[in-house]
Design a binder for these strands. Structure first.
Lengths: 212, 212
DNA sequence: GTCTATAAGACGATAGAC
DNA sequence: GTCTATCGTCTTATAGAC
């Protein structure tokens, strides 16, 4: 056992930081930046407010941390599969990734939404990359249209409508569960939403969903 | 001129209340209930915080006022046209109403979203009516499916996906304008979104959009 | 009827004790 | 390195002046 006291503390501190970040994600996703108190974050993390302020620089930088986590997930998990040049496969896979993210990380999705609702000022640093990634996807969709693989449509609108419907299951989870009288945690519910979403979108693009 | 002093004051007060409500709508829609200070509302209404508290009972009831406005609009403006039994006409008209509301009252749309994001506790009073209205629409859609007018789909999912895409243009207006490089105030932009949305949804339902 | 002065407490943040 | 005591500000709300 050569674990020094410093090492132990370091590990504990890292766990504590993750603990705090998770508490922050929950609070910020519900109440936004303005609406969240460091008090509430501290309480959720099992700390006193004054203790919390030892671990974080300030509320603003904790929020920036959390925002960057959202975008890191987004960039790593949700991409167009460029291997496949088949619109049906690319779109189906993209819809699954986006929807799965809403199901498994609804709080991260909601942080993006609260930030956008409150003016998106703290999001400006992330826009340039997002714009590039978006343009790449839009160009691919539009090239499909040019090749006649999709009906004549605006790739930007298609992409936004996919975002809208997948994001819905995070932001409006309360409403969805009320309407469906089912939990979004239930794998069967998730699967039937996914299947309907794929059919709906592919048909809307003038594609025929493959039935295997 | 028989206008008494009392009448004049009454009129002014009503104007002031509307002024305050509008300021409240703007602030609440951006920052939610927790995130909005009466200070910010007062300032936007051109009052001092202490003046504002003369006109309102408290923050909570001002918020309740604003929420009820949202639902009054919703109930009056956004309905299924039961006169027409034609799915294409009913859906097209519904999409136009919903989308138009997002364009012309984005702040009211956003208040609903912030409230849902923060747990929707203050919305509970409005759910029963909303559930009834929703069920009626779902039943109609499902009857179309039973008659073979629409492809086999779950009416609840279709309705939610229409909500998601139309609501998007209020909640995510910042993102939409960035992606489209256009203003959502522009009638041409609005019209092209509407047309694409109708084509997309009708095709997704297995209907063929009429082209006149 | 309208507005000011001010209370009572929550807010984010820090200096300094341990 | 960790936590407590505390500061100054901002919060909602009201009592009382005009």
């Amino acid at each position: 056992m050569t674990t020094s006291k410093a090492d132990t503390l370091k590990i504990n501190r890292r766990d504590m930081m993750e603990n705090i970040r998770n508490a922050a994600i929950t609070e910020f996703s519900q109440h936004g930046f303005n609406g969240t108190s460091t008090q509430a974050i501290a309480q959720r993390a099992g700390l006193k407010k004054s203790q919390l302020h030892y671990y974080i620089v300030d509320k603003e930088s904790l929020y920036a941390d959390v925002l960057s986590i959202v975008f890191r997930y987004w960039a790593n998990l949700i991409t167009f599969d460029t291997e496949s040049m088949n619109p049906v496969q690319v779109l189906t896979q993209y819809i699954r990734q986006k929807l799965e993210f809403s199901f498994t990380h609804p709080e991260l999705s909601r942080i993006f939404t609260t930030e956008l609702l409150s003016g998106a000022q703290r999001l400006e640093a992330f826009w340039p990359d997002a714009v590039i990634n978006t343009r790449r996807k839009v160009d691919l969709i539009n090239s499909w249209v040019a090749e006649g693989l999709l009906r004549k449509l605006d790739g930007r609108l298609l992409l936004m409508h996919i975002w809208a419907m997948t994001q819905y299951y995070a932001d409006y989870a309360v409403q969805a569960e009320l309407v469906l009288e089912a939990s979004l945690l239930d794998p069967q519910t998730r699967e039937s939403i996914f299947e309907e979403l794929v059919d709906f979108i592919l048909l809307g693009c003038g594609l025929s969903p493959s039935k295997e």
